[in-house]
Amino acid sequence: MNSRFAFIAAPVLVFAYGVIRILDGLDGSRGPGLAWTTGHLAFMAALVLFVHIFWRMRRMAGGNALATVSAVAGTVGVVALLAQFGIDIAVGLLSADHAAMSGLFEQVKEVPGVPFVVYDAVPILFYAGQLALVGQLAVMRRVRAWTPALVLVDLIVPFIDKDLIPLGAVCLLISFVPLARAAVTAPRPAVALA
């Protein structure tokens, strides 16, 4: 996969998700329907690209242990978020209205382990892995010092208000443009020969 494409497309898809989410809520509720499904699919596509991004940033950091742990953590977080958004889409498709969606979500969250793995704890690894990788690249001076700050803004704003997701995505795009350039010229980590 083209690294430059992934670094640019992922924030654009997150932006699309944020805008679609806002539009979906203009009638007072979100989902079910085309906007709900389309927005979630856009975010899922971004998540798939983030897996490539995490492993490319790992390579940019030299493939060391910290970068590897961060990429693994980020990838595990992606899997949890893909499950979460997959559930959201399924619930939307199975529901006639927003009230029916709420009932189905309650049933899903009653399944032992699902809240922890899919909603509450494991998805945080996506954000922690991403910030750790960008932070390591900044410490190594492979990206500017402001890059982790913009990534942090992107990660924080949805917790303040989910309607700020497009703003966070713009910050992420600004921070990822230099990463996209650097990813093309990043050295491959040395492979130890036995």
Results as ranks from 00 to 15, higher is better:
162 K>F: 13
56 R>G: 06
184 V>T: 15
44 M>E: 08
174 I>H: 02
153 V>Q: 05
85 F>V: 00
68 T>D: 01
22 I>W: 08
88 D>F: 13
194 A>H: 13
9 A>N: 04
75 T>D: 06
108 V>S: 03
159 F>N: 10
159 F>V: 07
114 V>W: 03
26 L>I: 08
159 F>K: 01
65 A>W: 07
17 Y>P: 04
24 D>S: 15
162 K>V: 12
57 M>K: 02
15 F>G: 00
49 L>F: 14
86 G>V: 07
141 R>H: 12
183 A>M: 09
175 S>E: 06
144 R>K: 11
106 E>D: 14
157 V>H: 12
68 T>I: 00
47 L>Y: 12
107 Q>L: 08
127 Y>G: 14
10 A>S: 15
107 Q>G: 04
172 L>T: 04
6 A>M: 11
153 V>H: 02
13 L>G: 07
91 V>M: 05
194 A>G: 10
71 A>G: 03
18 G>S: 07
31 G>R: 10
55 W>P: 02
81 L>I: 03
189 P>S: 05
120 D>S: 10
147 T>N: 04
1 M>E: 03
112 P>R: 04
28 G>K: 05
192 A>C: 00
138 A>H: 06
122 V>C: 01
59 R>P: 01
40 H>E: 09
192 A>L: 08
112 P>Q: 05
18 G>M: 06
169 A>I: 11
112 P>A: 15
34 L>Q: 13
22 I>V: 13
179 L>G: 05
108 V>K: 02
138 A>F: 07
72 V>C: 02
141 R>N: 09
51 V>W: 01
31 G>F: 05
53 I>M: 13
51 V>I: 15
167 L>N: 03
145 A>Y: 09
9 A>I: 11
41 L>S: 07
89 I>F: 09
83 A>S: 10
89 I>A: 07
23 L>F: 04
144 R>C: 00
74 G>P: 00
11 P>L: 02
85 F>R: 12
37 T>K: 08
135 G>S: 13
50 F>T: 06
192 A>S: 12
185 T>M: 09
130 Q>I: 05
194 A>D: 11
74 G>S: 06
123 P>S: 10
93 L>R: 12
119 Y>V: 01
127 Y>T: 13
98 H>R: 15
143 V>L: 04
99 A>F: 03
5 F>I: 13
96 A>S: 13
122 V>D: 06
140 M>H: 02
114 V>C: 11
147 T>R: 01
176 F>T: 04
82 L>F: 09
147 T>M: 08
110 E>R: 14
118 V>H: 03
176 F>I: 05
91 V>P: 10
177 V>L: 12
155 L>H: 02
154 D>A: 14
157 V>N: 02
134 V>A: 12
2 N>G: 02
181 R>G: 15
190 A>E: 15
20 I>C: 08
22 I>K: 07
158 P>I: 05
15 F>S: 03
104 L>P: 00
53 I>T: 11
60 M>R: 08
32 P>F: 09
45 A>E: 00
131 L>K: 08
120 D>H: 03
191 V>T: 13
183 A>H: 12
38 T>R: 02
172 L>S: 10
107 Q>S: 14
129 G>H: 13
116 F>S: 07
186 A>I: 07
157 V>C: 00
55 W>K: 10
134 V>T: 14
31 G>Q: 09
49 L>W: 04
4 R>F: 14
131 L>A: 15
3 S>A: 14
173 L>P: 02
39 G>C: 08
31 G>Y: 10
73 A>Q: 03
53 I>P: 06
35 A>K: 06
